[in-house]
Simulated scan of single mutants.
Amino acid sequence: MSKRGFGSCLWCIVGDFNTVRRLNERKWGIGDYGAWDMEEFNSFIRDMELIDVPLVGKRFTWFRSDGSMMNRLDRVLISESWSAHWGAGFVLQC
Rank of each mutant, 00 (worst) to 15 (best):
S83T: 06
H85E: 15
E25F: 00
I78W: 05
W82Q: 03
D47V: 01
V76E: 03
H85P: 01
A88H: 14
G7D: 07
G5S: 14
H85D: 09
W36C: 12
C9G: 15
V76K: 00
S2I: 08
V91F: 09
M69V: 10
I51C: 14
T19E: 06
G31E: 00
R21W: 02
F63M: 09
R26Q: 01
V56H: 05
F41D: 02
G89M: 10
D66W: 05
V14P: 02
E39V: 02
R26I: 00
R59I: 05
T61L: 04
V91S: 15
W11G: 14
L23E: 09
W11M: 13
K3C: 13
R59N: 07
W36A: 15
P54G: 15
V53M: 14
G29C: 14
S43M: 13
F60N: 00
S65F: 06
H85I: 07
V91E: 15
S79Q: 07
R26H: 01
V91Y: 13
Q93F: 12
W28L: 12
L50N: 09
D47N: 13
A84K: 15
S81H: 06
R22T: 05
F17I: 04
W82G: 09
F17L: 05
I45D: 09
W36V: 12
N71W: 07
G29P: 07
V76I: 15
S43I: 04
D74A: 04
L73K: 05
L10F: 08
R22D: 05
S8G: 13
N71M: 11
R75L: 01
F90K: 11
K58V: 06
T61Q: 04
V53A: 11
A84G: 09
K58I: 07
R22H: 13
A88R: 12
L73D: 02
R72Q: 05
L23A: 07
D52T: 10
D37T: 01
S79Y: 02
F41K: 04
G67V: 03
R59G: 08
T61G: 07
S8F: 06
K27L: 11
R75T: 05
I78R: 10
R21E: 05
S81G: 05
W62C: 05
A88M: 10
R64W: 02
L55N: 10
T61M: 07
F90V: 07
F60Q: 01
E49A: 13
E40I: 05
K3T: 14
G5V: 04
D37I: 00
F41W: 04
L77T: 08
N71T: 06
I51Y: 06
T19D: 02
S68D: 01
D37K: 15
S2V: 08
V56L: 12
A88F: 09
E25A: 03
F60I: 00
F63L: 10
L10M: 09
F90D: 02
V53C: 12
W36D: 10
L10V: 06
K58R: 15
L10C: 14
S43Y: 07
S79F: 06
D16S: 01
P54M: 12
R4C: 10
F6G: 15
G67L: 03
D52E: 12
R21C: 14
A88W: 10
L73R: 09
F90W: 13
V56W: 00
G7V: 08
E25K: 03
F44M: 13
